[in-house]
Nucleic acid binder design. Structure first.
Lengths: 110, 110
DNA sequence: CAGTTGTATCGACATTCGTCAATATGTAGC
DNA sequence: GCTACATATTGACGAATGTCGATACAACTG
């Protein structure tokens, strides 16, 4: 799964024809949403009090090992869907809603 | 990649917490958008005159073999993102925009 | 300092995915 | 029937992905 920050690169797919390289970028972005654990992480963080969540809670909630959770968090943060803030030994995450909106807008209808 | 019709199953992920089984369904749906060829197919079909396209054009346009294109078309049709209509020996496809809207709405912000 | 705890990285593994060549199926016209 | 062409299916392959155990790093505490 490769990374790259999600930019405001792609118009609405169903309204204008998408170019090959734009399709590559968009597909890589949707690939991040194509995993149930990553979707749950996004949802859990977005719905946490203050809109942020400590990474330390996620292994237990998701039922995945700490390395697995760390891996998913890294992917989401690399893509800019999450922001990461270190507080002491804890890492806190927020959802970067504008980035999610880029993907939503790509699915806009005519 | 498993199939299943995309239903109106999942609320806005960033507004309400998503359950584990809902996350599985949504992730499977986004997996369909996580491939550049499938994204281009959706875009090409949606932007064709009359909103429909003959499958016979797609191997040349996408640069993939006929079996590969057929495979992707089957996945998109199984999920209900495309509808297929047989006309003589040609298969014509349309984008089922309501189904795409389900995915778009899942990314709705607060 | 040592000990504890949260996080990141590494290595390995099974599974899934996209792809094509070969082949089969279907549909039309002769 | 036979031929031609569009499409579907099969089988196989390499590559990518999600996962965890082991380990290393980082930040606080005593």
């Amino acid at each position: 799964m490769s990374l790259k920050i999600i930019q405001n690169c792609c118009g609405p797919v169903l309204v204008e024809p998408i170019a090959s390289d734009e399709a590559e970028e968009l597909a890589a972005a949707f690939k991040l949403l194509a995993d149930p654990i990553r979707l749950r992480i996004l949802s859990l963080v977005a719905n946490s009090p203050g809109g942020e969540m400590c990474g330390c809670e996620l292994p237990q909630i998701t039922g995945r090992s700490q390395p697995t959770v760390s891996h998913h968090l890294s992917l989401l943060a690399e893509a800019g869907l999450l922001t990461r803030e270190q507080r002491g030994k804890w890492a806190w995450f927020k959802v970067e809603r504008e980035r999610v909106a880029v993907l939503r807008d790509a699915l806009q209808l005519s």
